[in-house]
Write a protein that binds this DNA or RNA. Structure first.
Lengths: 246, 246
DNA sequence: AGGCGCTTGTGAAGGCGTGCACAAATCGCG
DNA sequence: CGCGATTTGTGCACGCCTTCACAAGCGCCT
């Protein structure tokens, strides 16, 4: 079906290629593939089979192939995928080659940890500004960054071209902060505060609620406990398969 | 208020009710409903309509009704749902009435914050033990808890009946810690370390990768940027609703 | 050059989840 | 006591995602 000429090479500079609209499910897995690929690259692998990469990423190999095929990927039948090339491909698609500027609002317990989280810097992001509403925290030095007052958000966001904001405030102030971020031109928000944010349609929000994750696990604990006490006796087999790692 | 009798009342003690096997998607939303319900209860509401609760939880009302119907829920046509009753129902299903004991391994940057995260305690969980492999950290006092050496995990887990463990270590040691947790009888793991864990089939794992969340947002930034620069001209309207799950 | 084994890419089928639209049920009121 | 307003519970259709299974392509070996 597809012509063998993959005309638009998305390598780096140049024209923007026709942007593929990937399924959301695929997008959510690309970062996982990317991490696995980086790990493979470090061990010196030149190529990977879909089977190998799938195992490293904890997914089905057919799913992985379909995911990669969606982004018009480069693979060689009989050989596998070129690791370096695939890394470049995925990083381009995810927009990681732009080393995006991120700001973080709320330097409390959790915000403090996020400000120092090494995983951000090592995976394509620069935390360039910290904000808080508490005057006592303004001026504090965290990981080489000065905590600034939230009233300066708009100015700083413009200066640093910030498009992604992280909310790590108490729930009560999250919506207010979100409004401020939107007003400052931020178009993507990662929200750690429990509760629903309402934002304009062109702003993307992703939520991480730590307590919810535990509650989901708690449900499965409850289920498992009630199963073992049932006469049916099916101890614990079934369908739960949790992949393999390296 | 309460009127008709539903056959099997899953209130609390007594016989284990036939455990409904809910769709995973529903389970993931129950905690969100629960949070919204608690908020409503604080404002003094006795009942809620599916429309109202759906708005507070950020979902479609039809979806909410279907979710609640799955757990054989109590609602009164023409009136709505009894807030207190529904809270009890969901907390029972999620197993939150048991106030589960949780342990946390890895008292680094992130682990430190998690140990002090108020959201856990307020939503049905007790963090009862902290572990680390670094002798310098053992003995440290965090939020009223002593950091213990990971070699003591097995003993402490048994003493405290711990069934849920949280991994907040560097990626390199995550698999080792997971093995230790499993050996100690933990059957649910919340993993903050990047990478895939391999565990027995009866152990549930949920992963939270902060960098992945940012990378997904980055993709959408990239997409938005390439759209605005395209001749198509559709600035940014369309169908983008609200946040996403994990 | 030719054949063989390996791996990708994809058509097709099945399952799951979502959202619409409506019947059934309940309350309040005249 | 019946009627209308309101809201739940759900049958149904649609679309997305997953998974299987296999043809097409590629390199290597003889």
């Amino acid at each position: 079906m597809s012509q063998q000429r993959h005309g638009s090479t998305p390598g780096e500079a140049g024209g923007v290629p026709a942007f593929p609209d990937l399924p959301e499910a695929t997008i959510a897995r690309l970062p996982e593939y990317l991490r696995a690929l980086h790990h493979l690259a470090e061990t010196g692998a030149e190529t990977v089979s879909s089977e190998g990469l799938a195992a490293a990423a904890g997914v089905n190999s057919a799913k992985l192939r379909k995911d990669l095929s969606h982004l018009g990927s480069y693979g060689t039948r009989g050989v596998g995928y070129d690791v370096a090339l695939l890394v470049a491909q995925i990083e381009f698609i995810l927009g990681l080659d732009e080393n995006r500027a991120v700001c973080l609002v709320g330097v409390g317990n959790l915000g403090h940890a996020l400000a120092g989280y090494a995983g951000f810097a090592s995976r394509g992001f620069r935390v360039v500004a910290l904000f808080d509403a508490d005057p006592n925290k303004v001026g504090e030095q965290i990981n080489g960054l000065n905590v600034q007052h939230i009233d300066d958000l708009r100015r700083v966001a413009a200066e640093e071209s910030i498009t992604i904001g992280v909310i790590a405030t108490p729930p009560g102030t999250a919506q207010m902060v979100a409004d401020a971020l939107v007003a400052a031109g931020v178009t993507s928000i990662l929200n750690f505060a429990p509760g629903v944010l309402s934002v304009p349609a062109n702003v993307d929000v992703r939520k991480v609620d730590l307590a919810i994750e535990l509650q989901i696990l708690s449900f499965h604990e409850h289920r498992k406990a009630s199963l073992t006490s049932l006469p049916g006796g099916r101890s614990a087999a079934a369908d739960n398969q949790e992949a393999v790692g390296s």
